[in-house]
Computed example of a mutant assay.
Amino acid sequence: MTEDQAPSAAVSVSDSAASANEPRRRLTARGSQRRGQLIALATRRFAADGYHPTSVADIVDELGVGKGVFYWYFESKEMLLEEILRDAQRGLRRAQNHAASTAPGPIEMLEMGIRGAVKWSAEQPELAKLVEFALTDERFEPLVRKGRASLVSDTVPLLRNAIDQGIIPEADPEMLAYAVFGVAAHLTSVFLERDGSDPDVLADAVVDFCLRGIGAR
């Protein structure tokens, strides 16, 4: 049986529980494409219509496949959103690290990382919106918090280096990292995702506020 020949009925609870302990199926090129289509379509529908109002039936009907195809790749709608959120946070982390990779010093790396994050949010508004939603839902909030902790862990060494070099005043670098991330994420959410501010202008404001806050300006 191929991926697109999966039975149209949803898998049973026992089948889902069993598959949770099995390694992910190796997908053919066609299977990887189909899985990507499900993720892309669900991302769009969840962002536009909301996670809770959007059903598995809505997703597969628009894609033109049966429910069995959906359950071949994902045990549940919840698992699908978790996968989307993980992909989103990996993408954000890559964007930050790439933006900071050529900066000459710790504060410059911090600045470019902030700019990279704002740019990512501007270019991926649907994913950014779903991350914000996930923070309001007790099922998904721990996953997002865990991902954000990884982003903070990338920032702590930069701040520690800046303190050691006398660039910024002595302080707890982890506390500073959480403060910078929290301010940047909140300002981006309010002024970019809700108000549609210019990303470059917003990035300038976020960088200025954060660097002044840690004593780098």
Rank of each mutant, 00 (worst) to 15 (best):
W120M: 01
G31I: 05
Q96T: 04
V65K: 06
E108R: 04
G50F: 07
S76M: 01
P125V: 09
I168G: 01
V152C: 14
S101H: 05
G66W: 07
S101I: 00
Q33G: 13
Y71T: 02
D137K: 07
P142T: 01
G116M: 04
P157C: 07
T102Y: 03
H52P: 11
V118P: 05
I84R: 08
P125C: 12
R145W: 11
L92D: 01
Y73V: 06
I163K: 12
W120G: 02
K67Q: 08
Y71H: 08
V118M: 03
L85C: 11
P125Y: 10
V69M: 04
V152A: 15
A42P: 09
R93H: 12
G91E: 03
F70E: 03
F133S: 04
A149P: 12
A122F: 13
R34I: 13
S55L: 09
N97C: 10
G91P: 06
D154A: 11
D49K: 15
R148F: 14
D137R: 01
G36H: 10
R30G: 11
P53S: 06
R145M: 13
D164P: 12
E75I: 13
A117W: 08
D137N: 04
R86K: 15
T155Y: 15
T136E: 01
R93W: 14
G105Q: 02
A122S: 14
Y51S: 02
R93C: 10
A128H: 10
M109C: 05
R115E: 00
A95M: 01
R86A: 13
G105T: 00
M79H: 15
I59N: 07
A103F: 04
G50A: 05
E83M: 09
D49M: 14
V118N: 03
A47Y: 12
V118Y: 05
A88R: 10
R145L: 14
A48F: 11
F46G: 02
G50W: 07
V69A: 07
N161G: 13
